[in-house]
C-alpha cells in the first residue's frame, strides 16, 4: 500500500510517497530534509493540525476572542473541538496565553491569543 502526500513543513512543498513495508514500518520518499520524513510519517499515522478559532467574549471592547490550540490536534478531533469552542462564553479581562479550554482526556489545550483588559 502507498499514499502520495505534499509536505507542509516548509514552503518547498515536496511531493512525498509513504509506503507500508509491513503493518508498522513506513518508508517515506521524496522528502528533501528530515522534517519531511517526520511530517510524512505523522500524516499517514495520525494527521494533526493547529486549530485557531474565536470564542464569544463579554467585553466593552471586543466581541470575539481569538484562540489557538497549544499544540497540533489530531484531525479527527477538530470538529468536536470547534463545537465545544462555539458554546463557550468568556468575560474580560483575559490575558494572552491563558488556558480557555482544557480537554484533558484528549490532551487538547486551547489558549487565548490576545489580551483584552476590559
Amino acid at each position: 500500500m502507498k499514499k502520495d502526500l505534499i509536505c507542509i513543513a516548509c514552503p518547498l512543498g515536496c511531493r512525498l510517497t509513504a509506503r507500508w513495508l509491513n503493518e508498522s514500518a513506513i518508508e517515506i520518499t521524496g522528502n528533501r530534509c528530515p522534517r519531511g520524513e517526520e511530517y510524512g510519517r505523522e500524516e499517514v499515522v495520525e494527521p494533526k493540525r493547529v486549530v485557531t478559532a474565536t470564542v464569544r467574549l463579554k467585553s466593552g471592547f471586543l466581541k470575539r476572542l481569538p484562540v489557538t490550540t497549544k499544540r497540533p490536534v489530531p484531525k479527527d478531533k477538530i470538529a468536536a473541538l470547534l463545537n465545544r469552542l462555539y458554546t463557550i462564553e468568556l468575560s474580560a479581562p483575559v490575558i494572552r496565553g491563558e488556558v480557555v479550554l482544557d480537554m484533558a482526556d484528549d490532551g487538547v489545550q486551547v489558549l487565548s491569543s490576545r489580551t483584552v483588559k476590559k
Partner: peptide
Amino acid sequence: LHQCIHNGFGLHYFKEELTGPEYAE
C-alpha cells in the same frame, strides 16, 4: 494582524510560530 487569527507568523523574526494577534501584541 488582529483579524489574522491563524498561526504561521513570526517563524523568521521570533523563531517560533505565532498567531496574528500574538505577533501584534
